Simulated scan of single mutants.
Amino acid sequence: MDAAAATARPSDITRQIGVISAAVFMIIAALVGTGLLGGTPVQDLQGGALDADGSYLAPARPAFQIWSAIYLGLLAYTVWQAMPGQRESARQRTIGWWIALTMVLNGLWLVLAQFTTLLLTLVGIVVLLVALAVTFRIAVRTRQGGDGLADALLIDGVTGLHLGWVTLATVANATALLTQTAPGAWADAATGVGIAVLVVVGLIGVALAVASRGRIAPALALAWGLSWLAVARLTGEPESFGIGVAAIVVAVVVLVAAVVVRFGRAGVPAA
């Protein structure tokens, strides 16, 4: 039991039930949004605009396997936070509803992709990104040296993976919309613009490493997505050698920044 929160409150059980409800919604929404319960398969959503060949900044299909790790992590968090020992935790009280919100928004994005427009999917994923950024900031701020491995993995780790991946997914979503709506002549500038965007992604990754005191999870998710983006551009369509190489360089920079910050701070818990 958290010493800073020794007395149970009625709102604690409400929070635990709320997180469970959010997880259930996320899973049902994912089943509907990916077409597993009928409808359009996920790779064909929005006319294929969100697939690996939908834009210059879309990762190859294997990159999306990271969702399995994120979903499993969120479900493990849901079970863990529901345990009696977590009911009165001050950290759970601070972050539980935020993680629930990210699960709802996660599922909602897939529903938007299945049934609405590409513009609304971009709005949805931007809102999710903002919620994840706030949640991750809370996770970093509330982390204590005495917190255990479960805290590190299921709060810091899972939230970090989710944030890192959605950061890149937001870029891909925005690029998909631009690809569908911009004049065809803009394709001539695609490589230059794509490299510039990747530089910004790299700066965001470095900023995350510094602000989070070297949390590894966001960097791993970003590097994973960037690596598969490089594969998509170097071996698939639309092909772009410049974007592919830039994605590899940015992935290395993001990982190195996180490692340098992490191991440059003795005693900071890995997550």
Rank of each mutant, 00 (worst) to 15 (best):
I20W: 05
N106C: 04
A187K: 08
I99C: 04
L177E: 02
G184S: 15
A30M: 14
I204C: 04
Y77W: 15
A152D: 12
M1T: 09
L154G: 02
I138V: 15
A82V: 09
L108R: 00
V32R: 02
V261M: 06
A82L: 08
H162P: 02
I248L: 15
G39R: 08
A209L: 13
D151T: 11
A52C: 08
R262E: 13
A3C: 08
Q86E: 14
A8N: 08
A5M: 09
M83A: 13
V201W: 01
W97P: 02
V268D: 10
V210L: 13
L57V: 05
I66N: 00
G33M: 02
V256W: 07
P41E: 07
T235A: 15
S212R: 05
T135R: 00
D51F: 08
Q43D: 09
G236K: 03
V259M: 13
A185D: 15
I125E: 01
L129A: 11
I95R: 00
S11H: 09
F136P: 01
L74E: 11
V24M: 10
G160H: 05
W67M: 05
L119W: 11
W165R: 02
L118V: 05
M26W: 03
V134E: 04
G267E: 10
G157S: 06
V197Y: 03
F263R: 11
A270E: 11
P269Q: 09
I243A: 05
A219N: 07
A172V: 05
A266S: 14
A52M: 10
T142V: 14
R61V: 14
F241L: 14
A207S: 14
A207C: 13
I155V: 15
A196T: 12
V126P: 01
L105S: 00
E239M: 13
Q81L: 09
T94M: 09
I70P: 03
A223V: 04
L132C: 08
N173R: 02
A52G: 12
N106P: 02
R87I: 09
L75K: 04
A63Y: 01
R215P: 01
V250Q: 04
L105G: 00
V259P: 02
L220S: 03
A257T: 12
I243W: 01
L154E: 06
S227F: 15
L129T: 13
Q65N: 14
Q43K: 14
Q180S: 15
L229S: 00
L120F: 08
N106V: 03
A221D: 07
E88V: 11
L72G: 14
V127I: 15
L36R: 11
A257W: 01
A190T: 05
G145S: 13
A182Y: 06
A230N: 04
V206H: 05
G244H: 01
R9C: 08
D156H: 10
G236F: 07
V254Q: 05
G146F: 10
Q65Y: 13
L110A: 02
S89C: 12
G39Y: 09
L226D: 03
L163P: 01
D53C: 06
W109T: 00
L177M: 12
A176H: 00
